[in-house]
Design a protein around this nucleic acid. Structure first.
Length: 326
DNA sequence: AAGGGTAACAACCGCCAGGCT
DNA sequence: GAGCCTGGCGGTTGTTACCCT
């Protein structure tokens, strides 16, 4: 059976989104919430495929997305997670809640892969040099081939042990209610992890990116200023989650602290701040926050686990293999 | 200054899984 | 249980900006 296209190909616009289209989409989602993407093009009049609308929202328009410059810390996270999870970008993105899988994927393909290859080359060269030196000075009884295979096997066993250790740890932590939010993503399906990436509010275009579109986004922000204020009516999502006020305040302050740039750049989202920081972003209508992003302490716990609690093994392995990476 | 090459990023495509009827 | 619909994921491509000659 031939799969029908996600939308009629005829009359569907392709290519870069214009600010006007973004406004239409954002406005619609603000009113109706994300979901039912099939209906979005017809209801908004956008000449876009439903999939394109969803992608645009997920990757660029959704509140709480950080764009541009990856920090060294984020780089390390990505490299470590990629080593552990492979090219499961959605899963990796669930550990970097401000980043989208697409962004991470692009960054990996354009920056980190090259960086890693380069580092590998350098380390191999250094390894070859040191091997040459040692083969010249070592006694004949110690076969270099033998020692190399031992080293390789040692590394392999070490990596396997690390994987097992991390898998066990992830599983136990996922099953532990104390740290459930962040690790739920570890064990949940990719769909769930995908759903987890939204919580903080604000507009997503970073100020750092000085593209043509960035300035356009400022225009959108201007246009949209107050746009959310005119519709403060509670939707069904508001009734779904009702954390106590103390929790709400803690979360709110964390989100504001971490996404201050976003709030500054888009002050019209005030009421969303309240909604979202309480875990009630429009996304949450269908996307419960399981990342624990808003819970900094749990996030730190994970980072600690990733970088320290593993006994430094993950980092050691990566540094063993790529001493020049960072 | 112009042209070619490359890097970076946005967007698309095809496949797949889960939910619903 | 089968078929359809919708949404998610990962790979790939297209476009644009930047750099070098």
């Amino acid at each position: 059976m031939v799969r029908p296209p996600c939308c009629d190909k005829g009359g569907v616009k392709k290519g870069p989104w214009t600010p006007e289209e973004d406004i239409i989409l954002v406005t619609y989602i603000q009113e109706h919430g994300p979901g039912n993407w099939r209906a979005v093009p017809t209801n908004t009049g956008l000449l876009r495929c439903s999939k394109s609308c969803r992608l645009r929202w997920t990757n660029y328009l959704r509140p709480g997305i950080k764009r541009g410059n990856f920090t060294e810390h984020e780089e390390k996270m990505i490299v470590h997670l990629q080593a552990l999870l492979g090219n499961r970008w959605a899963a990796i993105a669930s550990y970097l809640p401000q980043r989208t899988d697409n962004d991470i994927k692009n960054y990996w393909n354009t920056h980190l892969k090259k960086k890693l290859n380069k580092a590998n080359q350098v380390s191999h060269q250094e390894h070859d040099q040191s091997r040459d030196r040692s083969s010249l000075s070592s006694s004949p009884s110690s076969s270099s081939a033998n020692s190399n295979s031992n080293i390789a096997r040692g590394q392999w066993e070490r990596r396997l042990q690390t994987d097992i250790h991390l898998a066990k740890k992830a599983l136990s932590e996922a099953l532990s209610p104390a740290v459930a939010p962040i690790n739920t993503a570890t064990t949940s399906s990719s769909t769930e992890s995908r759903r987890s990436t939204s919580s903080a509010s604000g507009f997503l275009r970073t100020q750092e990116t000085s593209t043509t579109y960035a300035s356009n986004t400022e225009n959108i922000a201007k246009l949209l200023k107050g746009w959310v204020k005119k519709s403060p009516t509670q939707n069904s999502a508001d009734q779904m989650v009702s954390p106590d006020s103390e929790t709400k305040e803690v979360i709110k302050s964390n989100v504001e602290k971490d996404c201050g740039w976003a709030f500054q750049s888009f002050s019209g989202f005030d009421h969303l701040k309240d909604r979202d920081s309480a875990g009630v972003s429009p996304d949450h209508e269908t996307k419960p926050d399981i990342t624990g992003y808003s819970n900094q302490s749990q996030w730190s716990l994970f980072e600690k686990w990733l970088f320290e609690d593993s006994g430094g093994q993950v980092g050691d392995i990566l540094l063993d293999e790529n001493p020049n990476f960072f």
